[in-house]
Amino acid sequence: MGVVTLTIDNKEVKAKEEMTVLEAAQSAGIDIPTLCHHEKLEPYTACRLCMVEVESRGRVKLDTACSSPVKENMVVRTKTEDIIKIRRTLLELMLSHAPDSRELQALVKEYGADKDRFEKEASFCIHCGLCVRYCAEVKKKSAVGFINSGVRREISFVPEIASKECWNCKECFELCPTEALQTAYLFTVAQISDSPSFELESEK
């Protein structure tokens, strides 16, 4: 297990070879905002909020810290003007989906995002995939998944599995950065009592 040395925000950081830039930064007490990251789960790069500037072998590029592995002599900058602008725009886009999310509100203050920049289209889900991945990777139940594609993408519980597994678990609830998940679950519960099929749901 080798150790590599890299620079994050002008600070020399020693990290284990298999770490990601995000883990290295966290170990050095440097804060990188994330929404879709969870230490028990594989990197997913959905929220893109952990975007950092990476300089490696003389080339500068933008990459998600949660997925890029550390490299020797790597230079990482986490708070450049460009990065802050990107994060601000990402937040503004997410706010159009989940205007009241507390986790987003906290970041809004930090980055000076304008919550009214984009027209509200409250689906309450920002597609971080935490619930979907937690259920599949940690609980191995896959009771919740994504359905549809593009702008119509949303989370959906599989009623047959959810009715057996979810009531006693609900561990995904607290992971959700917005409150979309609870709503989706309650919606599913309501549906089971009536007609247990996702065919009807996908038809909308």
Partner: peptide, 19 residues
């Protein structure tokens, strides 16, 4: 393959018919 994953794939592509 989990039912959630199949549901994901089957609703992702327009080619599949669930009704």
């Amino acid at each position: 393959v989990s039912l959630a994953q199949i549901q994901h794939t089957a609703t992702f592509y327009k080619a599949f018919r669930l009704v």
